[in-house]
Write a protein that binds this DNA or RNA. Sequence first.
DNA 1: CTAGAAACCACTTTTTCCCACTTGTGCACA
DNA 2: TGTGCACAAGTGGGAAAAAGTGGTTTCTAG
Lengths: 150, 150
Amino acid sequence: MSNFLGSHAINMDAKGRLAIPAKVREILMQACGGRIVLTANADEERCVLVYPEPEWEILRVKIEDLPNMKKPVRRLQRLVLGNAAPMEMDSAGRILVPPTLRRHANLEKKLMLVGQGKKLELWSEERWFEWLDETSCDEDIPPEMEALSL
Amino acid sequence: MSNFLGSHAINMDAKGRLAIPAKVREILMQACGGRIVLTANADEERCVLVYPEPEWEILRVKIEDLPNMKKPVRRLQRLVLGNAAPMEMDSAGRILVPPTLRRHANLEKKLMLVGQGKKLELWSEERWFEWLDETSCDEDIPPEMEALSL
DNA sequence: CTAGAAACCACTTTTTCCCACTTGTGCACA
DNA sequence: TGTGCACAAGTGGGAAAAAGTGGTTTCTAG
């Protein structure tokens, strides 16, 4: 199964195209033949999520099936389904990021592509470093995390 | 089965016509031969719902059959059944949005068409972004949603 | 008879695909 | 260990095709 690790600095050109780094591209090709899905994340640190299609399908079904009489569920559905975009790489291994997602994550020229195991995250470089510097953990640590030992 | 994803910025012209984006049009053609139904939604965020006819039929029957001694049910029926409008696309792939629905969702020139799996939502662009930017995620998160891992 | 909607047609803009150039990296050989 | 060569990766632009837009005319219903 696919396993994305590490981060890469990449550039988006004026047309919104971005070249997937060759190493990541390889993993994507064998995970899903290059068929990927981009979407928005739903938490307050805005970035774009990049899923291999099979992984996305699992998630999609779960989200579609949530009963949506409650507001937070509708919000999640509108963000995640409403921003999802199936993508294929062009002959040069590039993908085109839709304007809505560029807006969501504030993507301009300089980006960071961050491996997260089953998926990748795509950040505005500026925001990524901001986030790294700011982040701290004053919130309650959930029990399943407390049990970890790094 | 139809599976609408992603959002598209579209314009309504002075006559109330709006061009369905080509990709969405394709999905609609194969889902229902272009026969769609527009109607109002019933929650507080007002938008127009766009269903392929077969999907609409399933929903219509469910809503018609609800026992309607309670006020919220009557409200739902009046809004959803009372605003439903069957539509066909013209030769250029455009539809005409009825004035009542334009009013319901405050549709003027700039709109967003948002994929939501089995259906599409049509928003005033202004309202869509307003709603997205509302950070209020502090409402009760239902347990089935809490268990998700994006 | 009038107003609004539908069909049609022509024009403009956007998107997509492809090709060529530049940059970077790794390897071999001096 | 340094230099250069060769191949792979990344970047940019342009042309063809597709999509979207706007207007005019015809039809239909009130």
